[in-house]
Design a protein around this nucleic acid. Structure first.
Length: 603
RNA sequence: GCAGCCAUAGCUCAAUUGGAUAGAGCAUCGGACUACGAAUCCGAAGGUUAGAGGUUCGAUUCCUCUUGGCUGCGCCA
C-alpha cells in the first residue's frame, strides 16, 4: 500500500470514528482533496497527500494545496492541467466558494464564511476545543525537570521544567495518556560528601532558616576543603559505600536530605502549576542495577575493561554518532553510573505501563549520552530476543541557558536561583499593574502580578525554538511589551471586560457571522488552533503555539479596534460580534492553558 | 580527530519541515484615545537568508565543500 493510500485511509477512518468529535478544517479539506483526486481519476499514484495548510498570503485565498505539482510528473501532464482537473472535482463542495489555479500549479481554495462560522462554533463547543485526539489509546512517559537533591533549583532547571510541562499539557490535549515522571537526582557520590560535611560543619541556625541553602553551602564547603585534603574524598567514598550498603544512620540522613529538597521543589512546582504523576528518582532503580550489568555481560554486549564494565559500540553501528564509542555502566570501584540507571528505567517503564513512547526533556549536552543509552538498550533487547522497537525513545533536547559570563556552576556559586527569578518577575509585573490598574484593590493586584510575572517568564522561554541556546538576560526574560505573555493576557482580559460591560449572561458562539474582512480573518485564525496544537505536540515545539497565540491576539485586537461590539449598528451584528469575542476568548484561553499560563478575567 | 547543533533586518527571534513577494517583536521615525481597556492599533524604514557549488517546476529549508561560533566525546549527572 502506498503512502497516499495509507494516509487516505487514515483520514477516512478519522472522519468516521467517533472519538474525534470535531475534525479540523485542514483535516476536512484534506479528505475532500483526496476524494477530488479520486474523482478526477488521478489516484493510484504513490504520492503522499500533503495536508492542506492555510495560504501564506491573504491574496491567495484561505487554504492551499500543492498536490498538483507533486502529481504532475507521475501523471505525465503539466502541473496546471493536473490542477485544473482537481479543481473541477473540488468546486462542488459546500465548504468551498471557489478554487483558483495559480502560479506553477497551486490550488487556492476560497472558503465560505458561513461554513467557517459553523466549523468555529463546533470547535468552540467541543470540550476538547477541537483539538484532535491523535494520541487516543497510547501512553507516553514524559521525563522532565529532574533536579538534584540537596541543591536549590536554579535557572538551569527552568527550561526542562517549563518546556517539559508544556509538552505534558500538549500531549494530554492530544488525547495521550500521559505519565509525567520527575527523575530526580537522589543518589550518587555527592551524598557521601554531604554526610561528611553535615557531621563536621552543619550550622543548625542556618539550616533552620534555609534547609536546602545550608545543604548547598555544605556541599560547596566540602569541595573547597577536599581540594586541599585528599583524605576527605576517601572519607566521602566510605560514607557513600555505607549509605549504599544500608547503614541506618546514613540512610536516615539521606532520607532527610531528600525530603527537605522535595519540599523546596514543591514550592516552585506549585507556583508554576507543575504536577507529576510520579517521582521515581535514581535511587528507585538502585536494586536493579547489578542485574542490568550482569545481563549485559551475559549477553556479550558488555565487557570488562580496565576494571570497569563498558558497552562498546561498533564502528559500523546504525547510529552514526555512537560509532566507536563506549558507555561505562560500572566503575572500577563497583559503583554504577547514570547510564546504568537509565537502562533500568526504560525496562521498568516498559514493564509497568507499556508506553508507546518515552520523552526525555533535557539539555542538548546530553545528546550523546541518550543516543548511547538508547542504542545500548535496543541491542540489549535484541540480544534477549525481545522487540527493540517496543517503545519509541525520544530525547527532545533544548539549548543551554548560559549566563553572560559563561556557564553556571553550583561549585563556583554563580547561579541565579529559580525562586529569585520568579520573585523578580512578579515584582516587575506588580509595578506595571500598579501603574495601569490603580483602581483594583491590593489583593487583586497582588494576584494579578503573580499570574502576569510567572506567565512572562514562562512565555519568554517557550516562545522561541527550544533548541537554540539562550543567554540569560533579565530584561529579555521579563519583558512585558510586544510578543509576550502579558500581551496575550491583556487581549483575553479585553474579551472578558466586553462581556462584563455588555452584561452577557451566558456567552455563546451560535450567532457567529462575518460582516467585515477583519472578522473573516479572525474566524480563519481561530480555526487554526487544532492544527497548531497537533504540530506543536508532534514536533515538541511549544513555540509554534506561542507564535499562533500572538498572531491570534493581534487579529483580535485589530478586530476590536475597528469594530464596535456593544454599540454595533444592529442587534444581529452585536450578537455575532459578541460570539466572535467569546470564540476568541475560548481559543486564546485554551491555548494559554496548554502553555501553563493562567488566563485572567481582569488585569 | 570524531560527532551533534548553529549562522536570517541594528538587536532578539519566526518562517506551517521543499512552496508564491522571507515575517514578527524590540529599538528608530511618523500617526490614532472628551475611551466597548492606549498593557492597544495604523504606517515608514530596515535583507545578496555567512560564502561557493549542486539537486528541481520551486531552496532559508535537502546534498557537498569553505569560513566562523557553540557543545559533547570511558569511569560526574
Amino acid at each position: 500500500m502506498g503512502e497516499a493510500q495509507r494516509r487516505l485511509l487514515g483520514y477516512r477512518s478519522a472522519l468516521l470514528e467517533p472519538p474525534m468529535a470535531v475534525p479540523s478544517v485542514s483535516t476536512l479539506l484534506t479528505a475532500r482533496l483526496v476524494e477530488a483526486v479520486r474523482v478526477a481519476g488521478l489516484d493510484g499514484y504513490d504520492i503522499a497527500v500533503e495536508r492542506l495548510a492555510p495560504t501564506s498570503k491573504a491574496g491567495f485565498g484561505d487554504y492551499q494545496s500543492n498536490h498538483a505539482m507533486r502529481l504532475a510528473k507521475a501523471v505525465g501532464q503539466p502541473p496546471r492541467v493536473v490542477a485544473e482537473r482537481i479543481k473541477q472535482a473540488l468546486e462542488a463542495d459546500e465548504a468551498i466558494a471557489r478554487v483558483e489555479v495559480a502560479g506553477p500549479g497551486f490550488l487556492n481554495l476560497h472558503l465560505k464564511d458561513e461554513w467557517l462560522c459553523q466549523r468555529l462554533a463546533l470547535q468552540c463547543e467541543d470540550p476538547a476545543g477541537g483539538v484532535e485526539d491523535s494520541g487516543q489509546g497510547r501512553t507516553v512517559v514524559i521525563d522532565y525537570s529532574s533536579p538534584n537533591v540537596a541543591k536549590r533549583m536554579h535557572i538551569g532547571h527552568m527550561r526542562s521544567t517549563i518546556i517539559g510541562n508544556a509538552l505534558h499539557r500538549l500531549y494530554q490535549a492530544s488525547g495521550w495518556t500521559v505519565l509525567a515522571d520527575n527523575h530526580i537526582g537522589d543518589w550518587g557520590t555527592q551524598f557521601g560528601m554531604l554526610i561528611v560535611a553535615w557531621r563536621r560543619w552543619l550550622d543548625p541556625v542556618a539550616f533552620e532558616a534555609d534547609p536546602v541553602g545550608e545543604l548547598e553551602r555544605l556541599y560547596v564547603a566540602f569541595r573547597e576543603a577536599a581540594s586541599g585534603d585528599a583524605g576527605l574524598e576517601d572519607l566521602a567514598r566510605q560514607e557513600t559505600a555505607r549509605l549504599q550498603a544500608g547503614d541506618p544512620d546514613n540512610q536516615t540522613l539521606w532520607k532527610r536530605f531528600v525530603a527537605i529538597s522535595m519540599a523546596e521543589f514543591q514550592g516552585v512546582y506549585d507556583r508554576l502549576g507543575v504536577q507529576f504523576d510520579m517521582t521515581l528518582g535514581e535511587s528507585f532503580y538502585n536494586p536493579e542495577l547489578p542485574g542490568v550489568v550482569e545481563s549485559l555481560l551475559g549477553s556479550g554486549l558488555a565487557e570488562e575493561s580496565e576494571g570497569a564494565v563498558v558497552v562498546r559500540f561498533a564502528e559500523d553501528a546504525a547510529e552514526k554518532s555512537v560509532r566507536g564509542r563506549t558507555l561505562v555502566i560500572r566503575k572500577q570501584d563497583g559503583a554504577f553510573l547514570y547510564g546504568t540507571t537509565d537502562l533500568a528505567t526504560i525496562e521498568h517503564r516498559l514493564a509497568s505501563w507499556a508506553p508507546a513512547r518515552a520523552v526525555y526533556v533535557t539539555d542538548g549536552r546530553q545528546q550523546l549520552h541518550f543516543q548511547q543509552v538508547f542504542a545500548a538498550w535496543k541491542a540489549w533487547r535484541q540480544a534477549r530476543g525481545l522487540d527493540p522497537q517496543a517503545i519509541e525513545l525520544v530525547h527532545t533536547w533544548f539549548g543551554t541557558l548560559k549566563l553572560p559570563e559563561g556557564m553556571m556552576s553550583t561549585r563556583k556559586g554563580n547561579v541565579i536561583r529559580l525562586v529569585e527569578l520568579l520573585d523578580e518577575a512578579v515584582r516587575r509585573a506588580r509595578a506595571v499593574v500598579d501603574e495601569k490598574s490603580p483602581s483594583l484593590d491590593e489583593a487583586e493586584r497582588a494576584s494579578i502580578a503573580e499570574a502576569v510575572g510567572l506567565a512572562a517568564v514562562r512565555y519568554s522561554d517557550l516562545s522561541q525554538n527550544p533548541q537554540s541556546d539562550v543567554i540569560f538576560d533579565w530584561d529579555r526574560m521579563l519583558a512585558m511589551d510586544g510578543n509576550t505573555a502579558p500581551f496575550l493576557l491583556y487581549s483575553y482580559a479585553r474579551c472578558r471586560a466586553l462581556q462584563r460591560k455588555g452584561e452577557v449572561q451566558q456567552p455563546g458562539v451560535q450567532a457567529l457571522a462575518v460582516s467585515h474582512p477583519l472578522e473573516a480573518a479572525l474566524v480563519r485564525q481561530l480555526l487554526r488552533l487544532p492544527d497548531v496544537v497537533a504540530a506543536a505536540t508532534e514536533g515538541h515545539r511549544p513555540n509554534l503555539l506561542c507564535d499562533y497565540l500572538f498572531d491570534t491576539a493581534q487579529a483580535f485586537n485589530r478586530f476590536y479596534y475597528e469594530q464596535k461590539v456593544l454599540q454595533a449598528e444592529s442587534e444581529a451584528l452585536r450578537a455575532s460580534r459578541l460570539a466572535l469575542v467569546e470564540a476568541s476568548a475560548r481559543v486564546m484561553g485554551r491555548g494559554m492553558e496548554l502553555l501553563g499560563l493562567r488566563p485572567l478575567g481582569r488585569m
